[in-house]
Write a protein that binds this DNA or RNA. Structure first.
Length: 584
DNA sequence: GCCGTTTTCGGCCCGACTGTTTTCAGTCG
């Protein structure tokens, strides 16, 4: 799969470099489309090429197919090499700076010898920029500010930080006089693992008052835009927040528009056009061929109040936010996706016996307080020395202590388990006779997370095929923005997991979210069982569950595929005899 | 560069805000 990613990166470079040269915008977006196609493809692009099917992929024509073939044969693409020889690589990094687009970057390069971020800084400092036409003091100050911001905040915000902040902003703005509705939209509403900025949409009788309140918050570092219906700020915490104000009767159209994804919006607009309609953030309108926006000409929308109304008018099934990515087809009716309330159990958690902060009883009580009736206590195994992993003797004592707790908590199903290390060669950290004493075994990789792809595949495959392993915990071991983790051959693992009835975990910790959404989607297509666990080390960690459920929804997980949704009897049956999903 | 119930040419999604300039280009989402 990594060839797909590498090639996608090359086409992204081609698109960016073409933009800087001022190439036709449609050619640029055609190359960007190729990037998406490659990223969403669930087959190896080399296989597609071998079977002569490249041009059957939507968005790949003769030219692109030739470039892909050339890359697969030689490892390079002539067109890309040519662009690189003409244009400094460092210019691509300038496109990530807010306010700098391809036109400006091209001008800076041609007219001020700017080739990267460093020389941009120099050009600002020595006054070269100010000598260019259409470069006023404000524009230069904004570029300088965006450049400094880009240097210190290069990463996207994890959902675990963005979602609580957005909820706080929403509840605060709801108290502003005149405000009747506030929602967050964007990638956050779609449940993406990281977000670029927070999008808010509000309905109010006093737009000016709301915009003033919003832009005058004490935590505002910079006001990026301020108008009658739109404002944008950057907080001192370096997170950007956009606010849109709309009339109540077009809220659905605006929510739809600003929830995205961009690709989903394009598909909906194309759909609208094919039905002689026109879709924008104010509603779905009849297409009368007039260029002036219909809402400005007093034309009533065909649908606008709710998202449901618009999908319905487009004769499409209502798509949940989590299924509005480029890989999702809006024509396909969505499955009944899993919801937070469907979850009955936490099957991966830690106590003070290893590196958790709660005692057995505290953990059980915290689980009950979250509305769950089933808890599996799975402390670390002996090799996780840094996590105070349990020796076999300590494990025996721990199992007995867990069994004792059952008498004190008769309302809960309490399982004695372990999170067993999967060694680099695929062996497990406890012998089979020890594993047999446990109610549940979660096998996870913790060390050797940089091993080669084929070794990682063999390693995880052994654990998946092990008859005593129920769940593979955080299968790749990645940490978002910090380490990539293992890169195994997913299709091979998924096929084995489905056949053996071994569940693959979505670790709900927002720093992990592992499996990630695209792999979850592939796992569902392969017929795998899924587990959603918080890996709780404290009581607060149990609240991570919603991030796991959001990721599951993005991967099209239904309750029947998730072992955490099983009622006690069915869960015990599966634990006693792992069964594949399809035959259960 | 890709695509096709307006199919081999002529389209390709849409609107708000900013800055600098007097009507709009560039950027963003």
């Amino acid at each position: 799969m990594s060839v797909n990613r590498q090639l996608a990166g090359y086409f992204e470079q081609i698109a960016s470099l073409m933009e800087i040269t001022g190439a036709n915008a449609f050619k640029v977006s055609a190359n960007r489309k190729v990037v998406r196609v490659l990223e969403d493809l669930d087959r190896d692009i080399a296989d597609v090429a071998t079977s002569g099917e490249l041009e059957s992929l939507d968005g790949i024509g003769k030219g692109t197919a030739a470039r892909i073939s050339q890359f697969l044969e030689t490892g390079t693409i002539d067109d890309l090499e040519h662009l690189r020889s003409e244009i400094p690589d460092g210019l691509i990094g300038l496109l990530d700076i807010s306010g700098l687009g391809p036109k400006t970057v091209g001008r800076l390069w041609r007219e001020a010898d700017v080739t990267d971020r460093q020389s941009l800084k120099a050009a600002i400092d020595d006054g070269r920029l100010a000598s260019l036409p259409r470069m006023g003091a404000k524009t230069i100050a904004n570029i300088a500010d965006s450049l400094a911001f880009a240097q210190r905040a290069s990463q996207r915000t994890p959902i675990g930080r963005a979602l609580p902040l957005a909820e706080q902003l929403v509840s605060q703005l709801k108290t502003v006089p005149g405000v009747t509705r506030v929602h967050y939209a964007g990638s956050l509403r779609r449940g993406c693992e990281t977000i670029g900025d927070i999008d808010l949409i509000a309905v109010t009788t006093d737009p000016t008052g709301l915009v003033d309140t919003f832009t005058n918050r004490p935590d505002v570092a910079k006001v990026l835009a301020k108008g009658d219906t739109k404002a944008a700020i950057r907080l001192t915490s370096d997170i950007q927040v956009d606010l849109r104000i709309v009339p109540e009767d077009v809220l659905g159209a605006t929510l739809l528009y600003f929830t995205g994804s961009k690709e989903h919006n394009v598909l909906l607009r194309e759909r609208a056009r094919s039905m002689h309609m026109r879709l924008n953030e104010y509603g779905l309108f009849p297409d009368d061929g007039d260029d002036e926006p219909p809402q400005q000409r007093g034309i009533a929308p065909l649908a606008s109040a709710t998202e449901d109304d618009i999908y319905s008018a487009l004769e499409l099934p209502m798509q949940p936010c989590s299924l509005r990515e480029s890989a999702d087809d809006p024509l396909v009716a969505p499955p009944a996706l899993i919801e937070l309330n469907d979850i009955r159990s936490e099957l991966h958690s830690h106590t003070t016996a290893s590196d958790g902060h709660l005692t057995i009883d505290e953990l059980i009580n915290a689980t009950r307080d979250r509305g769950l009736g089933i808890i599996a206590i799975t402390d670390h195994s002996v090799s996780s020395v840094q996590a105070n992993g349990l020796s076999v003797d300590r494990l025996h004592t721990h199992i007995a202590a867990i069994h004792d707790a059952r008498d004190r908590h008769p309302d809960m199903l309490i399982l004695a388990g372990s999170e067993v290390d999967i060694h680099a060669d695929g062996r497990l950290d406890y012998d089979d006779d020890v594993l047999r004493e446990l109610d549940i075994v979660v096998a996870s990789p913790h060390a050797s997370l940089k091993q080669a792809s084929d070794l990682a595949t063999e390693r995880l495959l052994k654990a998946i095929e092990h008859p005593l392993v129920h769940i593979i915990g955080h299968p790749t071991g990645r940490m978002i923005g910090r380490r990539p983790g293992l890169d195994p051959n997913m299709p091979v693992l998924l096929e084995a997991a489905a056949a053996n009835g071994t569940a693959l975990e979505i670790n709900a910790n927002p720093r992990r979210l592992d499996l990630r959404d695209v792999h979850v989607r592939q796992a569902m297509a392969a017929g795998c069982r899924i587990a959603i666990n918080t890996d709780a080390h404290t009581g607060d960690h149990l609240a991570f569950l919603r991030y796991g459920v959001l990721t599951a929804r993005r991967g099209r997980v239904t309750p029947d595929a998730c072992v955490n949704c099983l009622p006690p009897d069915a869960l015990l049956t599966w634990l006693a005899q792992k069964s594949p999903l399809l035959s259960s």
